[in-house]
Design a binder for these strands. Structure first.
Lengths: 109, 109
DNA sequence: TATCTATTTGGCTATTTTGCCAATTAGGCA
DNA sequence: TGCCTAATTGGCAAAATAGCCAAATAGATA
């Protein structure tokens, strides 16, 4: 693989890597409804605030989310709305193979 | 997050996680042209055969690739073709922010 | 059968990721 | 100023990932 090609795929992979976590994916999904602050998302996800904050930073650094300070809270919003279309792609494959998907989820436990 | 919701996002994240690697992304890209055997991909990627084989298994287990044995070689093909459309989405985010992307690649080095 | 090729699997170490707690920073407000 | 809330950062231990080599497996062919 050429260095230039490697850089290109590394950049793409970085975006996917940022999305590739259940909690982060869930937060992206929630943010497709509109901006939310850290505390909102913390309650929805149910993890420690610091954990949620770190997940949000991962998404922000990958340019998936935008961030705006408002008073002493920080609102995150979805910058990369097209990711929602990808879920349909994934869903179309997974839903067509309920058994495989179920196995997959089991394996992951 | 409800258990059912968690399962759903875990399944989605598993697909993204499988894609979230430069070499695997590159292989998926190459396979969008048509099926290839392990040795073909090994040469294109330039890693150890066992490494390539393991990457292919990751993609196969995530239902992204199909696998067919032919003689003593194994051909992999793209099962989830819609992922290619998603790359355009990723690209649109990256290309619209060349500077940020360059920083990202640098950070990753 | 013996052997060669293609692929997968096992095992190992190095690296990365995750998620919690504790501590810090930053912004309101009395 | 002092205090409270919101969010981030540092640090740590557990878990997962990556990639190499060596070994095993499966199929073709002499």
């Amino acid at each position: 693989m050429q260095p230039k090609t490697l850089d290109q795929f590394t950049a793409r992979a970085a975006v996917l890597k940022a999305l590739a976590h259940p909690s982060r994916l869930f937060m992206v999904d929630q943010l497709s409804d509109g901006p939310k602050c850290v505390a909102d998302l913390q309650e929805l996800v149910g993890a420690d605030t610091s954990t949620v904050s770190k997940h949000l930073s991962v998404l922000y650094n990958a340019n998936i989310l935008a961030r705006e300070k408002c008073g002493n809270q920080v609102f995150y919003s979805l910058r990369m709305a097209c990711v929602m279309g990808f879920f349909q792609c994934v869903e179309s494959v997974l839903s067509g193979q309920a058994q495989i998907t179920a196995d997959l989820v089991e394996d992951l436990k």
